[in-house]
């Protein structure tokens, strides 16, 4: 019994150590990426390629998500409000939910899955096929060449992508409110414009840059730290998606909480 407890305690200690080392490693990796940020000028073509991949190629899934966001809020909240004779308030509910919370959150999760998976698997495959070692061996900084363009492209693309999600979410809400609740579009848009203050946009748009940095660094790091052949690429891809999504969920909550508390105080 004592031996079993000792074995568990050693395993736990090893696990904790490995978590701490990974976090330290991730911190150094992130610092190196920020220090190399100037390389984005040199690798502007890679930045454009990555912007196309994480921007244009992500559009279809983001637009589908945005359509469902606006529509679902109308279905769930609009009918509740209609019961109390307050369906004219539907636009307000949709506007605040979409702009401040749901649109950045859902778009963030979609981007974590799409961009995170791509970064982790692509860089993981490069790691196990020694292409990253080859870059270093022939004098190219792999962080400047591979991580910085992904980081900069995400940073540039996430704000317009989430802005587009906001717009599509609000429009889909307007159409569904008219079709399902027989709410005049003019009344819907009036209440949207009425409720949204600059601070609401600020809450919504403070999230994409944070998500961009987090998703890029986490997924690139999991790709770079891939070991163990093709099975390792699979594992690092899963890690890239899971950690990036967890980051999005946690940061979405804390950013809203901190900024809204600050506003209220």
């Amino acid at each position: 019994m004592w031996k079993l407890a000792q074995a568990y305690s050693t395993a736990l200690e090893e696990k904790l150590k490995s978590i701490v080392f990974s976090m330290q490693d991730f911190l150094f990796f992130s610092l190196r990426a920020f220090r190399a940020i100037g390389a984005s000028k040199r690798y502007w073509r890679d930045v454009l390629d990555q912007a196309y991949i994480c921007g244009t190629e992500s559009l279809p899934i983001l637009l589908v998500s945005a359509l469902s966001i606006g529509s679902l809020i109308v279905i769930e909240v609009g009918h509740q409000l209609a019961e109390f004779g307050a369906k004219t308030m539907t636009g307000r509910s949709v506007a605040l939910s979409v702009v401040r919370e749901i649109s950045p959150l859902v778009a963030g999760l979609m981007l974590a899955a799409r961009v995170g998976a791509r970064n982790s698997s692509e860089l993981g495959a490069m790691q196990i096929s020694e292409q990253i070692d080859a870059l270093r061996a022939f004098g190219t900084d792999p962080i400047a060449k591979l991580v910085v363009p992904r980081l900069v492209a995400s940073f540039l693309m996430f704000i317009p992508l989430i802005a587009l999600c906001d717009i599509v979410g609000l429009i889909s809400g307007a159409y569904l409110a008219e079709w399902d609740l027989h709410l005049d579009r003019g009344i819907y848009w009036n209440s949207v414009v009425d409720i949204l203050r600059p601070m609401d946009w600020f809450v919504g748009f403070s999230k994409p840059p944070v998500f961009a940095i987090g998703i890029s660094l986490i997924s690139c790091y999991t790709g770079f730290s891939t070991t163990g052949g093709t099975a390792g690429v699979g594992k690092s891809t899963i890690k890239g998606i899971v950690y990036s999504s967890a980051f999005v969920l946690i940061m979405n909550f804390y950013l809203s909480k901190v900024i809204l508390d600050f506003m209220r105080s």
Binding site: S129, E130, Q131, D133, A134, R136, A137, F138, G139, D141
Partner: peptide
């Protein structure tokens, strides 16, 4: 890494999987 660049230029490497 920066200091190693001129050193690495003196050596070429052929990786097992070619890379």
């Amino acid at each position: 890494e920066v200091e190693l660049f001129p050193i690495r230029q003196k050596m070429g490497i052929v990786f097992q999987g070619n890379a």
